[in-house]
Design a protein around this nucleic acid. Structure first.
Length: 282
DNA sequence: ATGTCATGATAAC
DNA sequence: TTATCCTGACATA
């Protein structure tokens, strides 16, 4: 689940549920040691950069990164959290006051499990982190010039560059495979071989598909009219990721490892560019 | 009960 | 380049 779209969607949902609200915060698992600092504080806002989520509580800021396993899900406050919950957020009960107890009335809680990070983050560390993240296609008004230059100056495969968060922030393994498919690019094409036109297309696709992902709250890359399988079917509708055959041409999908992650591409729709690959010696 | 894999990232060798 | 951290779902025995 957690690519950039998930995190931006979480920021949106958490704003909707907690912005301007005093929260009750606890860490049943105990590993968010400083949780008491935000317990009882009012959420100022929540925002995302790439795959990083930030919860602002006045002068305090919580930095959350889901990593590969992390989940942050809406639960019922009346259901006790599992012991693995690193952070539970709920509207703060206003006992004794007149008026309704928001927390109990809405029976609302959000539980965070399995994150690689859930800690307070000061301004300096925040700026440092932001400085090492590339352009986020989901941030409005972002200009991708720097990302393009990084890519075009690099000999690394485009499949590796897309996962490098300091180049573009927010793309993960599913979007990587699908974006390269839709761009007709072979994952091993060196960054240097990417033309302006190809980059522009890649960036636009990234923007559009990530934004669509935020709206749908899941990765959607295949337009409705191109879907074959039952629209109800569970799995995401994708072109190549984790598939046996290409959704478009039925060729057998090639699995490889690029930048330590499993890559999927269609040998027909994403041919190798012969400009960079030498013919095998006779 | 044990093993495997996953939409991520880093530290250490 | 390998090892490590985080959790849970599913497969296999």
């Amino acid at each position: 689940m957690p690519e950039g779209h998930t995190i931006h969607r979480l920021a949106r949902d958490l704003r909707r549920d907690f912005e301007g609200v005093e929260v009750a915060a606890c860490s049943p698992q105990g590993r968010f040691v400083q949780v008491q600092v935000i317990d009882g504080e009012r959420l100022t806002t929540a925002h995302a950069i790439g795959k990083h989520l930030f919860l602002e509580f006045g002068a305090h800021r919580v930095h959350i990164h889901l990593g590969l396993f992390g989940k942050f899900k809406k639960r019922r406050l009346s259901e006790p959290p599992r012991s693995s919950v690193r952070l539970r957020l709920a509207p703060r009960p206003n006992e004794g006051r007149d008026g309704v107890d928001e927390g109990s009335r809405r029976d609302l809680a959000w539980d965070l499990t399995g994150p690689t990070d859930c800690r307070l983050l000061g301004d300096d560390a925040f700026e440092e982190l932001r400085a090492r993240l590339g352009a986020d296609p989901l941030a409005d008004g972002t200009r991708p010039t720097h990302a393009r230059k990084r890519i075009q100056a690099s000999k690394r495969p485009i499949g590796a560059l897309l996962l490098d968060q300091s180049v573009i922030a927010g793309i993960g393994n599913v979007y990587r495979a699908e974006l390269l498919f839709l761009s007709g690019l072979h994952p091993e094409s060196p960054g240097q071989s990417i033309t302006d036109r190809q980059f522009t297309k890649l960036w636009k696709l990234a923007k559009d598909l990530l934004a669509k992902g935020v709206r749908a709250n899941r990765i959607v890359t295949v337009p409705l009219e191109e879907r074959r399988e039952a629209p109800r079917s569970r799995g995401e509708q994708l072109y190549v990721y984790k598939r046996r055959s290409c959704r478009r041409c039925q060729s057998t999908i090639v699995r490889s490892v690029v930048a330590l992650r499993t890559m999927y591409h269609c040998p027909t729709c994403q041919p190798e560019d012969t400009r960079w690959k030498k013919e095998p010696a006779q």
